[in-house]
């Protein structure tokens, strides 16, 4: 088990290094950051000065090593757009908002997807099952910005139940949370349903019923935990979906998090910040995947002991 975790971590580290190279290369290949730093009418001298100041006069691979060296000391570089503010500071400022929203989204998607997935499995081939299927298919066909806007229009503009945008109390979180979590709900629900159906058909469920265990206990104790194994593997992907989603959803709902930050930075070609945020996202994503594998081993003792 320990060796497994170590190996997974090594793989993850490798992926992060590759990603950092790709992002770094893209940032430098595509034009001179001095254009962003200086006004158009800047003189040659000024440009040279700035290049030396930011270390842009050195060869690319040297720049990369300098970048990595700084990275290991926790220095993510300074923003071009926000007048030399360290990227780490910008991230620290925006991170809580994103964590809050993602956690909330994860919570509602799990809170909706698992029970509904179980319900539609138990009610297989009935109207409830078909309704669930339709909602899932429809939802997976809607890009998150469209879904977010439609939610906003119906529940904030028309019904006035929630505020339209911005960060604030719980009511501010509901719409962006649902918009962000929705895609997961659909996918998780389908996975829960299918693995639930598989488990409901096993001998040990039959035995539990033969023992005289109540149907509710059969479903929630005997089936649910077994059925959870497959959807859990999907939780790694949820990391990706939430990251992707946070970029769009935060923009739609003017939620002041990392997703919105990265969009602003990209549109302003502020590559220090883009690099920093992308690396953070990649790191989170890979970390989630490793954690899921560990959790997986915990739920299924067959893995734990092998």
């Amino acid at each position: 088990m320990q060796r497994y975790i170590l190996r997974r971590s090594a793989q993850g580290l490798l992926a992060i290094i590759v990603i950092s190279m790709v992002v770094f290369a893209l940032a430098r290949v595509t034009g001179d950051p001095t254009q962003v730093l200086l006004p158009d009418e800047a003189s040659e001298e000024q440009i040279l000065q700035t290049q030396i100041e930011w270390g842009l006069d050195k060869p690319l691979h040297i720049q990369y090593f300098v970048y990595i060296k700084r990275l290991t000391r926790g220095d993510l570089g300074n923003s071009f757009k926000w007048a030399g503010v360290p990227a780490s500071e910008l991230i620290a400022e925006r991170l809580p908002a994103t964590v809050q929203l993602s956690a909330f989204a994860l919570l509602i998607s799990a809170a909706i997807a698992f029970p509904v997935g179980v319900l539609v499995a138990v009610k297989k081939d009935t109207g409830i099952d078909y309704a669930g299927k339709m909602v899932a298919i429809l939802g997976q066909s809607a890009p998150s910005f469209a879904l977010g806007l439609i939610l906003m229009w119906v529940f904030a503009v028309q019904l006035d139940w929630f505020p339209t945008s911005g960060r604030g109390g719980l009511s501010h979180m509901v719409l962006p949370g649902v918009a962000l979590g929705y895609y997961n709900v659909a996918a998780l629900m389908r996975l829960t349903r299918s693995s639930m159906l598989e488990v409901l058909d096993t001998e040990y469920v039959k035995l539990a019923r033969i023992k005289g265990v109540s149907e509710r206990r059969v479903i929630w104790k005997h089936c649910f935990r077994n059925a959870l194994i497959v959807p859990l593997t999907y939780f790694g992907l949820i990391g990706a979906v939430l990251i992707t989603g946070s970029v769009v959803t935060e923009t739609v709902f003017a939620w002041p998090g990392l997703g919105a930050l990265v969009i602003e930075a990209i549109l302003a070609r502020d590559f220090t910040v883009v690099q920093a945020v992308v690396l953070l996202f990649a790191f989170t994503f890979i970390l989630i995947n490793i954690l899921v594998d560990i959790l997986y081993a915990y739920i299924d003792p067959r893995i734990r002991y092998s």
Partner: peptide, 10 residues
């Protein structure tokens, strides 16, 4: 292993 939208944006 890399979120699509993010890569596309970059």
């Amino acid at each position: 292993a890399f979120p699509s939208i993010l890569l596309a944006l970059v």
